[in-house]
Design a protein around this nucleic acid. Sequence first.
RNA 1: GCCCCCAUCGUCUAGCGGCCCAGGACACCGCCCUUUCACGGCGGGUACGCCGGUUCGAAUCCGGUUGGGGGUGCCA
Length: 596
Amino acid sequence: MDRDRPRPARLLAGPPDPDLPQRRRRPGRLDGRHDPRHPDPRRPRQQRDDPAARRRDPHRHPRGCRPDGPRRRDRDLDRGPRHAHEQGGSTRMTVRVRMAPSPTGSPHVGLVRTALFNWAFARHHGGTFVFRIEDTDRERSTDESLSSIIDLMRWLGLDWDEGPEVGGPHGPYRQSERGELYADALTRLEGSGRVYRCYCTNDEVDARFKVRKAAYDEAKKAAATGGEKPEAPVMGYDGFCRDLTSEQIAAFTAEGRASVPRLRMPDGSITWDDLVRGEVTFETKHVPDFALARTNGDPLYTLVNPVDDALMEITHVLRGEDLLSSTPRQIALYEALKEVGIAKVTPQFGHLPYVMGEGNKKLSKRDPEAHALAYRDQGYLPEGLLNYLALLGWAIAADRDIFTLDEMVEAFEIGDVVANPARFDLKKCDAINAAHMRRLSIEEITHRALPFLKADGVVADPVNDADAQLLELAMPLIAERISKFTEAGALLAFLFVDEDAFEVDPEDAEKQLGEAGKPVLQASYDALSALSSWSTDAIQTALQAALVDGLGLKPRNAFGPVRVAITGKRISPPLFESMELLGRERSLGRLQRALG
RNA sequence: GCCCCCAUCGUCUAGCGGCCCAGGACACCGCCCUUUCACGGCGGGUACGCCGGUUCGAAUCCGGUUGGGGGUGCCA
């Protein structure tokens, strides 16, 4: 089972184009590529001329040096002279990235984060963002899931240049519709000698592994008494069918055995320069030859994903860390695909860190925070969710974490993405979202809150003019009090509810409307009913005089009962403004009612 | 088992050899503002996992170790 086919000792998945972004290089760790003789003309002069600064930072613009603007846009795109490129082309390739979700179940926030980083990367470099659907698993893929992913992307505003609903030159964009492409790829691959048929059953593979394991255990025992340390057996397929003779093949076929195509992994090691992790190397002896299709001929992810990336001319693959260990297989397959004319280049890979949940495990579909559409339904702002998700692995600046999508696009560098997994923190997500809420204009926030208020039955659907007007006046009172739209209804309902349906929270009533509250309410009623003008100021002045000055109450005790009587709750928008909006009749009526 | 990845406050992060006895944000605790809740302001506690090495100097570079995560399919 030795792998004697001559192969280059080391496959390097080189950058498809040296003009394209590279991982941020750390001096001393990886070789820099910048030529200091060619300073970047866009860099601030002081820095350009300061040799110390240059030494400190050969290619990277230090953060915080430009208080007057965003970080330099194309730091990596114009990094001076290039070394020769393996493809020999000097044409600048446009960035093409993709998101390739499997439409199974409800979309996950991890998917959103991956989509966001791909999207931001594409937009930052003026590239193309492709949306492809990996529905090769017919059992699990559903149209419902697909349409929820599309809804999600639309809601988020992450637009795609090619893919479902928009089409494009590399379609179709559903793998289930690309069968002949894969069949063709497979035929070519099998003709190349890089792929062979394997006739083993799973049981046979397992049985052989057990034998190897037993031999290993023996050898280990022997080594304990001073022998040579054995090499541990690799789990999985052992390359049994690599070099079958035609007689053997004929025999297997005569037996009626089915077969699968497997890629022959090259000897040596495979190294790539990961966009977020730097150099990663796998010895191929730890990467078994892998199947490209099922015995029934259905292509597998292992084939379909690189083939589509190749056909769609994807230049940069930014995906979850879980795919890290399948990258050497894909790079090997790319070599074969290049040989048979399907791939032009091997894309660059960047593996994004996980989004973790409670404890120390990957955020799973069981976690309620994992469901991306739930954020829409709970009244989060897409810009808020996206801002929060961007923070999981990326930072726009040392002292800043609220930003818009445009600002992210401007500043986003894949090399700035950190490699360590991030825990999803709903509280911070809420806080970031609330910050975006406060940035909205009253018109905007009103407009966007409306569907939620309708759903909660606070206003009618369609909303009538009077309610619409009232809403616009009331919105400023709650805009800074909510972190998501589903909180708006509870705060506003008292203004819109019919008097006979108005209810006071029983617990709050007990605390504020008891015997101690009665005189307060009575004094309030008296003072307010004498009022000639019904304005916030007049109300405040009158109540202040009657309760604080008149009854000698602390403001806290004075206004508490009134608040509960008027709004039904201890927590409400500002009281005097609320009363003004509620109007004289209704306000006095509610005080009366609270008095019993 | 083997392979790979990761490691700074509770959490997300800044940090790219001296600007750091470590900065910001969320959370937490005080105080101020205040008609509740918020918003806003001020202040506080809390982190470089460990051991070696390189260096005049290490959170930063290197090695090891420990801990965590992932992979190891005819799933994606």
